[in-house]
């Protein structure tokens, strides 16, 4: 009994700290960055940083949805490339109007996400395996579609997505809207409630007659759409869709969620946390760049941050499955 009591206290504390941990990490990182590099707080760097965080953050929304149900999505990096390339191809090669091209890209993302979701929910293959396969398939499909070459030079309209309203990048506005809507769904709708519930105790959710498969299908579709949206944002930013775009971004998306306090056993976390997690990952990369640390080391640094975050946040949260 003694241990259970302490265990519960610890969980209570961990839950309360779920937002505090990323918050204080973020503040610390910003302060340190500002001290270490004189360029960090310059307007140009902040503008660049916000544009950069946007893409990671948008992938992380979908990732958070999936992780909250107790799953994992390894495909967003590849689906970013696929969605981006599909949109580019539709606009540039097929000659469709920009909005239609964008919808087309998002639809491809949804389709790939639906494939993930169906295999996880209906065929009951672990999401790790399904989305690992989709990571390969999505990348391969992108290479086939683009013939391995970037698609460049879009009509003027596309660059609007990557423009600025005053000092604020349109990209970050898009992300803000996505986050607000996605958090509203999580907090106030049945769908959101069931996403948390499935991560807590899937069996119990099935017993009361909730269609668990449909919820799972939804989170994977949503993650696919978020990834494709990230790809379209990247198209606009670089004025080019490269088949290798987004490689390794699944790491950033997962790390953002975990750093933000989303429990990878599911059922605990929020998008506020995830956004802070995305900021931490991006600022860290930015700082290492400013300090002139070679890109090779950055991977090591990111990996280690992820492990540290997992150690400090995962303890004490174990729910019955």
């Amino acid at each position: 009994m003694e241990t259970t009591g302490r265990f519960k206290l610890f969980i209570g504390a961990a839950n309360r700290n779920r937002i505090l941990f990323p918050f204080f990490s973020l503040i610390t990182l910003i302060v340190v960055s500002a001290i270490v590099s004189p360029y960090f707080l310059t307007v140009i760097n902040i503008k660049h940083l916000l544009a950069q965080v946007a893409i990671v953050a948008v992938l992380a929304v979908g990732e958070t949805y999936v992780i909250l149900t107790g799953g994992i999505d390894l495909a967003p990096g590849s689906l970013l490339a696929l969605g981006g390339a599909a949109t580019a191809a539709l606009i540039k090669w097929v000659g469709l109007p920009i909005p239609i091209g964008i919808l087309g890209g998002l639809f491809i993302g949804a389709l790939a996400g639906a494939a993930n979701g169906l295999l996880v929910a209906r065929v009951r293959i672990p999401s790790f395996i399904v989305t690992l396969a989709m990571l390969a398939i999505g990348r391969g499909a992108t290479l086939v579609l683009t013939n391995g070459r970037p698609i460049t030079g879009f009509p003027h309209g596309v660059s609007v997505i990557a423009s600025y309203i005053g000092p604020i990048p349109v990209l970050i506005i898009i992300v803000f809207v996505v986050y607000v809507l996605a958090q509203l769904v999580l907090s106030y709708t049945k769908l959101g409630r069931y996403i948390y519930a499935i991560g807590g105790n899937e069996q119990a959710v099935r017993i009361v007659g909730i269609n668990v498969n449909r919820v799972k299908l939804f989170v994977f579709i949503f993650s696919g759409v978020c990834a494709a949206l990230g790809g379209i944002m990247m198209d606009a930013r670089l004025d080019s869709a490269t088949p290798t775009a987004g490689q390794g971004y699944e790491l950033d998306a997962i790390a953002a969620s975990v750093l933000g306090g989303v429990s990878f056993t599911g059922g605990v976390g929020s998008l506020t946390g995830t956004f802070m997690g995305a900021l931490i990952m991006t600022i860290l990369g930015n700082l290492l760049n400013l300090l002139g640390v070679a890109a090779f080391y950055q991977y090591i640094a990111k990996g280690m941050i992820l492990i540290i975050a997992a150690i400090s946040l995962s303890r004490g949260v174990r729910y019955a499955k």
């Binding site: 519930a197 017993i207 909730i210 729910y319």
Partner: peptide
């Protein structure tokens, strides 16, 4: 058949 991470009302009303 309770969902541990949800609160009391959420558990009582789960699914309805």
């Amino acid at each position: 058949a309770l969902v541990d991470n949800l609160d009391i009302p959420a558990n009582i009303f789960l699914g309805r």
